[in-house]
């Protein structure tokens, strides 16, 4: 088993263990807490801890009955390495610097956004401050766009802008 697969098993088996105990709130059911308290310390090696630290923004939840998982990797400088899974499929993410137009009509501003094969024309803003939950908001948006459908194989193909 590769390191990545082993980490996934550890993380998401731990996440699954708390599923039954979590409460449903507004259509969203948390499957894993944002901190590492739900990961048994004796099941994580030092290498795991160093190479794969939990980010408090990571999530594993049910949204409208669909499982979405997000992992923030390597910090904001390499945000394009973040991972999002909807159901059992990974969605390839691309970050772009783009204009955002606030819904209240205030002046547009430049920020970093995620796009993917599914929301190619609708970047979701992400930053380390007021939009730090961008990956989770993207996951929920993807579920809304998909409706009853799942991600197709094309959605995992990476591309650059």
């Amino acid at each position: 088993m590769t390191d990545m697969k082993r980490r996934d098993v550890l993380r998401y088996s731990a996440a699954g263990a708390v599923t039954a105990a979590t409460a449903t709130l507004a259509g969203t059911e948390a499957l894993a807490g944002p901190d590492r308290s739900d990961m048994p310390a004796d099941r994580r090696t030092d290498r795991d801890k160093k190479a794969d630290p939990w980010d408090p923004r990571d999530f594993d939840e049910l949204y409208k009955g669909r499982r979405i998982r997000g992992r923030h990797l390597l910090g904001s400088l390499l945000r394009g390495q973040d991972e999002l899974f909807v159901g059992n499929r990974k969605l390839a993410l691309t970050t772009i610097s783009t204009l955002f137009f606030p819904a209240d009509g205030s002046a547009p501003y430049v920020a970093t956004g995620y796009i993917s094969a599914i929301n190619h024309y609708d970047p979701v803003e992400i930053d380390d401050n007021r939009r730090r939950d961008g990956l989770k908001r993207l996951g929920r948006k993807i579920v809304d766009i998909l409706g009853d459908c799942e991600l197709g194989e094309e959605s995992a193909r990476t591309h650059h802008h």
Partner: peptide
């Protein structure tokens, strides 16, 4: 063709997102 949405039918969600 080459759909990133797993479906055989054309999908639309008119007015739901913008």
């Amino acid at each position: 063709y080459r759909s990133s949405i797993q479906t055989n039918t054309l999908q639309r969600r008119l007015g739901q997102n913008a």
